[in-house]
Design a protein around this nucleic acid. Structure first.
Length: 494
RNA sequence: GGCAUCGUGGCCGAGUGGCUAGGCACAGCUCUGCAAAAGCUUGUACAGCGGUUCGAAUCCGCUCGAUGCCUCCA
């Protein structure tokens, strides 16, 4: 049988063209994807997670279709300058001083936090997770190439990218829709005298002041790499001079990704990325979450209910489901009422799945499984439209519920196929977990509740409603909901 | 100020020219010993103004409002 990816085309919104284009890999059956990872100088907040979640879902769908994917997501551990002025302080070094830690200790702490958080949200690990500090040599080599190509200049032990020179030969600003002339016209007066030739120029290598802790030797003296260089160095190393997909948060479009394009084009003469994908922001109170402004919410605060913005806890899968109910290119605002609505929807979906597992096959099929499956794939193929996919999944739930009431049925082979696809979309593609998978499967609890259900059924048979209602209500108080159906009683735990 | 995006019913959120996703909430009905769960049914939309079109939430213009980027940020 032909691989799934041959049957299900994917159209993606390419930020470079601003249009939806069919995704055609450089090499059939293979995909290279690079996503800008976090800067590990503080705990990862939920906004960060949304971007990585979007690409986790995309990665999962590629894999589901049978693509062999090399997914590279870096860890920025070399620190960035605090501002564009010459007297910058390394972000990580600053934090280290604050907490009396070695810079690499800071990096380690927050890298671990990052991994733990993503694991709770059921992320798949990327194929390669390279660090900036592990690729200093590659970055230095890249700078040499850019200098040799004539697009960079050395100044007092630092190296800068010559944007104006580059723009004479190529185009700077094509990703973000900016024109260099406009940028020059709009530049504010520089407060400090700069060693850069033009304000638009950006650092490839910065000279380290004596007090700067994070430093490496280079042909231009001791220093550290510029902000945009690591991604070019690592994406080139692991995916090649040209690769299929580059992703990241919308806020990185300019200048970060613009500079990546410039750096790569400066040494390779060809544009590095065929499809640029940008995930939109998660907002809180209508504003972007940000480490620096403090407008943010941390995943753990949601999972354990400690956030002052919430009245109780919400599970990682609910958070995941909430985010996947919006398209990844749309801004999404988080609120408790939105989380609550998502939680109910998520539980309904999971209930449907549980019922599907116990469904008996009928003689014939009243459900157009082929059309349903085609719609699911079409939704995902249309720029990974998970909200539409979820809508189709709810159509599936509706069918399952009707089937359980004996109103509809599926024949044996269709039922098996339906189960397989339904689970594939929920678990493999969306990456959700069943509620019991999150709290640890508990055989003792299940047995105990089953016993109570049996006792209640017996009491109801004896018309001893005082006893039966007591069992039902007391369990409800404990967060266990009993559901009477045609085929007997099931339960769900909050 | 420049560039870009967005403004959908009570709430969240899909939808790029005609056939009006989905979830949550609300109401009625069925089922039930009563409920819950489930099913069925119904309602309230496309910021405003103007234009293009036989026809616009969807295209164009203007106005108002919000957000992102222009300094690190997913």
């Amino acid at each position: 049988m032909a691989p799934l990816y041959q049957q299900h085309p994917i159209y993606v919104t390419n930020s470079l063209s601003g249009k939806k284009e069919e995704l055609l890999p450089l090499k059939e059956g293979y995909l290279g994807m690079y996503v800008c990872g976090p800067t590990v100088y503080s705990n990862v907040h939920l906004g960060n997670c949304r971007t990585f979640l979007s690409f986790d879902m995309i990665f999962r769908y590629f894999r589901h279709l049978g693509y062999k994917v090399r997914y590279v997501r870096n860890i920025t551990d070399a620190g960035h300058l605090e501002n564009d002025a010459d007297e910058g302080e390394d972000k990580i070094a600053k934090k280290a001083k604050l907490e009396q830690l070695e810079p690499m200790e800071v990096v380690q702490r927050y890298t671990v936090d990052f991994h733990q958080t993503l694991e709770r949200l059921n992320f798949l690990p990327p194929s390669i997770e390279p660090t900036a500090t592990g690729h200093i040599i590659e970055q230095i080599e890249l700078i040499k190439e850019i200098i040799d190509a004539g697009y960079a200049y050395v100044q007092n032990g630092s190296v800068y990218f010559d944007v104006i020179k580059f723009n004479e030969d190529r185009e700077y600003g094509k990703l973000s829709g900016r024109k260099l002339e406009d940028m020059i016209a709009n530049t504010r007066e520089l407060t400090a005298q700069s060693e850069k030739k033009a304000p638009q120029d950006f650092a490839l290598w910065k000279k380290a002041e004596p007090q700067h802790i994070m430093r490496w030797p280079s042909p231009w003296g001791d220093g550290f790499p510029g902000w945009h260089l690591e991604c070019t160095a690592m994406s080139t190393k692991y995916l090649g001079k040209q690769f299929d997909i580059h992703g990241g948060g919308m806020d990185l479009k300019f200048p970060h990704h613009e500079c990546e394009i410039a750096q790569a084009e400066a040494c390779n003469g060809e544009t590095p990325v065929r499809y640029w994908l940008h995930a939109n922001m998660l907002t809180l109170n209508g504003k972007k979450m940000s480490k620096s402004t403090g407008n943010n919410i941390y995943p753990n605060e949601i999972f354990n209910g400690s956030s002052p913005l919430l009245t109780r806890a919400y599970s990682p899968s609910v958070v995941r489901f909430f985010m996947l109910q919006a398209h990844y290119t749309s801004i999404l605002d988080i609120s408790e009422s939105a989380l609550q609505a998502s939680e109910k929807g998520y539980l309904r979906l999971m209930d449907g799945l549980k019922r599907l597992e116990t469904l008996d096959a009928g003689k014939n099929s009243d459900f157009d499984l082929k059309a349903w499956a085609a719609n699911c794939y079409k939704a995902m193929g249309d720029d990974f439209n998970t909200p539409i996919l979820i809508a189709h999944l709810f159509d599936g739930v509706k069918f399952v519920n009707q089937a359980q009431e004996g109103k509809m049925s599926l024949n044996a082979s269709d039922l098996e196929e339906f189960k397989r696809l339904f689970k594939a979309f929920i678990f493999d593609v969306l990456g959700l977990l069943a509620p019991q998978q999150q709290s640890g499967n508990n055989k003792a609890l299940d047995g105990a509740i089953q016993l109570l259900i049996d006792l209640r059924t017996q009491a109801r048979g004896d018309r001893d409603f005082a006893t039966s209602d007591r069992i039902r209500d007391e369990l409800a108080n404990l967060g266990v909901q009993l559901k009477d159906g045609k085929e007997g009683t099931t339960y769900s735990v909050e």
